[in-house]
Amino acid sequence: MTTAETSDLLNLRSVVLSNLQHQHYWTDIKLLDTQVDIDENTQNDPLPRPMIYGRPPEQLYNPEPASSTNEASSSEKPPADKEYVLPVHLTEKLTLRTWASVFDNLPTPSGAAEGGEGGGDAKKKRIVVAVVSGDSTVVYYIMHDGIVKPRQN
């Protein structure tokens, strides 16, 4: 990746960052540039694309709500899970290879068996795709790695 492309992606990320902070009130935001930012045990290779890690004000949709048992015992809401955000510009064209490499650099979420890709019940990786358009509108989509049942069905 050339430096020009990298700086484009970093600018893109700053747009998404301010949108998340000031329009959607995300907290605990951390910028991710290399693999070390995600997992200290790995090498210092750059991520395929710069990302954001943060906590939404409310829990985003979760296919297997882990808090269902907690809700009964405590009236306090548990803090929402942190999410990985991938900024993308609307005019970009990505391939399956790119998406796969983004997911492959993410850690397996807690609760999933090690290397349990074959296990259907293993918690699947997911990211929030932030699509930025030319007028700085940002729309957010949840993308799962693997087959995950839609929420309302």
Binding site: N19, Q23, H24, P56, L60, Y61, L96, W99, A100, F103, E117, V128, V129, A130, V138, V139, Y140, Y141, I142, M143, H144, D145, G146, I147, V148, P150, R151
Partner: peptide, 16 residues
């Protein structure tokens, strides 16, 4: 050996 089909599921995140 993992030469299989890979899938990604997309849904609206509920905001934005």
């Amino acid at each position: 050996e993992s030469h299989g089909v890979r899938t990604f599921c997309v849904e609206w995140a509920g905001f934005g």
